[in-house]
Design a protein around this nucleic acid. Structure first.
Lengths: 110, 110
DNA sequence: TATATTTGACCAAAATTAGACAAGTACATA
DNA sequence: TATGTACTTGTCTAATTTTGGTCAAATATA
């Protein structure tokens, strides 16, 4: 059994994911925005990753779209992380270090 | 030629690094704190990664200790990242996603 | 008992968040 | 061409968070 290499692994962001879900559900921005209790302009920015979404809203999205909540949360957190390393020269090495720290911590309280 | 596995790769934090440098230079906290223009209590927190250091202070540290500035900056940034993913369940996957995003961005403006 | 370090409580100032709102685009089509 | 619909974007703002500490008291440590 050969392992298939993932050739084009998409670097999906939360905004892209939300847009995808919304379109699959056939909703307009205004409709989804209404469900979330925000304005359509704001949702547009969220989908373009120009504004972060409140964390609680992930739950609402999850109820609407029945997508694995872990995925949304992971993308949400990734956006936060990315926004602080985005224009840093040492972005990649910092991420590696942080990763080690997380792993190390997980070991300790395992 | 066999690849040697790194058995105990140190997950060094900025605080640990600063303490190491300070002790190697034979300085007391109060002395280094004075050089940096901060109180000893604050430096203690910095060394224990309970408070972040101002970024400019990295430069001062670098002048004092002649350590590669990139390393300090990377650790400094890593601390910021770690502080936001620290108690998140999806910390690791979020870091992976963020990493992909950084790589993707680097590709684009390469 | 000194000396060194840690910790908790507190704080002002600065930055970020979570939006609203209006104006601007894009695009289809009557 | 004009019009409508969907989306984007710039500017503004109040409220909240974070930053960058201080100081005194509590703990090591020698």
């Amino acid at each position: 059994m050969t392992k298939i290499r993932q050739v084009h692994k998409e670097a999906m962001t939360l905004g892209q994911k939300i847009r995808e879900l919304r379109e699959q559900a056939g909703l307009k921005q205004r409709e989804l925005a209404y469900q979330l209790g925000i304005g359509e302009g704001f949702l547009s920015k969220v989908e373009n990753d120009q504004k972060p979404l409140k964390r609680e809203d992930l739950t609402k999205l999850n109820e609407l779209f029945k997508t694995p909540i872990k995925e949304l949360e992971s993308l949400w957190l990734a956006n936060k992380v990315y926004s602080i390393v985005r224009d840093e020269e040492s972005a990649l090495s910092a991420l590696k270090v942080a990763e080690e720290q997380v792993k190390y911590k997980n070991l300790k309280n395992a």
